[in-house]
Structure formats: structure tokens, C-alpha cells
Design a protein around this nucleic acid. Structure first.
Lengths: 144, 144
DNA sequence: GTCCATGCAAACTGTTTGCACGCGC
DNA sequence: GCGCGTGCAAACAGTTTGCATGGAC
């Protein structure tokens, strides 16, 4: 069992909520997903373990996880919301305007911006979210 | 008539689309709104000028404006999408978590990030939106 | 045994679309 | 006059919720 899954389960129990089989499966898939999952994709993967799990349960579990700050919801311009486990390094997103592909990246320049901003404005930056849009390599070629 | 409104109307005409009364009203409200507007707020304001304008028209017009790159859609975690006119220099936002104050800023580092990202991933970045949160100078002092 | 969590289906909300009419060009 | 743009209402998609049952504690 991965350490991420373990931490998710512990946090859920610590909040006084019950660790049901459905939640266990949902946490497992979230922990194993390396990228973002939307609600339907998550539900599909969870149903491999138990086909009777309903989409409503997935939504309710995600709501709980958001409340606990264990998971982050992103609206990247697509039809459905995407969710990602927040344990791990912060990162940013590039979304292709044509095919919707999401590329995650991180760069020390963001920290540099935060520092510059803090000094210039006398503010205290807690979190920075960078969202780039454009055309991915494949779609750039297709346009030519 | 503001220069922003004028540029919006010109851009719409230049794209070969018709400048109807409804679109005129929608562009006017978008140009006058200093902050972000969601679809319903925009429709309400437009209906002051003409109560018969439908929400569908607002959505259709916003879709056109998005296609032309005149307006940007933001999903800031709220129920509805927000839209903002994109004319003028690009800039980014810092929002104070306590008092809600918004500080607009720009930094060459963002362009640097775009370039780095383009080269590393082989992508073509069209637009980058940076959204920082934290505590403004006043609120930082209040917390101490 | 208590009561939270679930499955189901229906309700809800934001957004899109089909259609006939009307207006910009 | 042609054809895009509009209003209306219905359709749609994602998400939430009411209710009775079942399982975690």
C-alpha cells in the first residue's frame, strides 16, 4: 500500500468519518492516478473493483476530501471537473486549446515571482496558481 | 463611448459578424464592468437596456467573443463562469484572503516562464494567467 | 444499536441547441 | 432579399439531493 493512500485513509479516519469499502476504492484510485482524474474516469476505475458504486458516492467522497484539503478541484475549461491529490509538490498547468491535453509543470520562476511580489507590494503570498493555455506539440503541427 | 467598447465593436465587425443591438448592449456592459462578470450578472445588466434579451444570446455572444480572443473565461471555483475583457496589457492578480483586495501586477518573469515552457515541451503558449493568493500589507500587519 | 454512508432515481443548475421569425447588411 | 442572429423552450450534462436500506463503529 502506497504511503499516499495510507495518508489519505488516516486523514479521513482522523476526521471522524467512516472508512467504507467504497471510500477505500476511491482513495486507492486517486492515490494511484499519476495525473488528473475527472469524476467519470474516477468512477469507471472504481467500478472495476466494485461495479455497484454510484457516481453520487464518488461526488460525495470528493466533496469530503475537498473539505479536508486532501484533494484539489480544477476547472481546466473542460466539461467536467478534474481532481488531484494534493499531497506532493505544487505544480502548474498548461491546457491545449484544441485537444484539451493537460501538461503539468513546475518552475522555480514562480517562487521568484512570489518573492518579487512580496517585496514590491509588502504582501505575503500563500499560494500561486499558474494556468497557461495554447497549443500542444501535436496540435501545433496539425495547424501548420 | 469608451475606447474599449469601440475596439470590441470594431473587432466584432472585422470578423464579419453583425453588430446587433443585443451585442452592442452586451459589449457595452462588458466594457464598463471593471471587474469580472458572470453570465447571469451580465444578462441582468444587459436587460436594463432591453428586458427581452435572452440568456441564450448572452451565452452565444460570449462564445463568439471567446473565439475572437476578446474575452476570457474564468472558473474561479464558483458556480458560474466569469468573463473578463482581455483588451489592454496582460496582467495578473493577487487576491487578499482576508479583505479580498485585488492587486494587479505584471512581471517579465511570466514571459520567461512561457518561453521556458515552450522550449521544454515543444508547445505554443497563447496566454498565461497567474493567480496569487495571500495576505495584503494591511492584513499582514493586522495578523501580527 | 446508532447513525453515517450508500444506491437509486429524481431534481437542480448552468449551458447548449432546434426552430421559426426578424433584422443587419 | 439573403442569411446570420435572436427569443423561446426544450434538451443536455454535470452535480446534488431525498429516501429507504445497509454497514462501520
Amino acid at each position: 500500500m502506497s504511503v499516499v493512500l495510507q495518508r489519505l485513509e488516516e486523514a479521513l479516519c482522523a476526521s471522524g468519518r467512516r472508512l467504507t469499502m467504497q471510500r477505500r476504492l476511491i482513495l486507492k484510485e486517486l492515490a494511484e492516478a499519476d495525473g488528473h482524474l475527472d469524476t467519470v474516469a474516477l468512477c469507471d476505475r472504481v467500478r472495476v473493483g466494485d461495479p455497484s458504486i454510484s457516481l453520487a458516492t464518488v461526488y460525495r467522497t470528493l466533496t469530503v476530501l475537498k473539505e479536508l484539503g486532501l484533494v484539489e478541484e480544477h476547472n481546466l475549461g473542460q466539461e467536467r471537473s478534474h481532481y488531484k491529490v494534493m499531497l506532493g509538490d505544487p505544480h502548474h498547468h498548461f491546457v491545449c486549446l484544441l485537444c484539451g491535453k493537460v501538461i503539468e509543470f513546475d518552475t522555480p520562476l514562480v517562487a521568484q515571482i512570489e518573492q518579487e511580489l512580496s517585496e514590491r507590494e509588502g504582501i505575503s503570498v500563500v499560494h500561486t496558481d499558474l494556468h497557461a493555455t495554447g497549443y500542444c506539440a501535436d496540435c501545433s503541427r496539425a495547424v501548420d
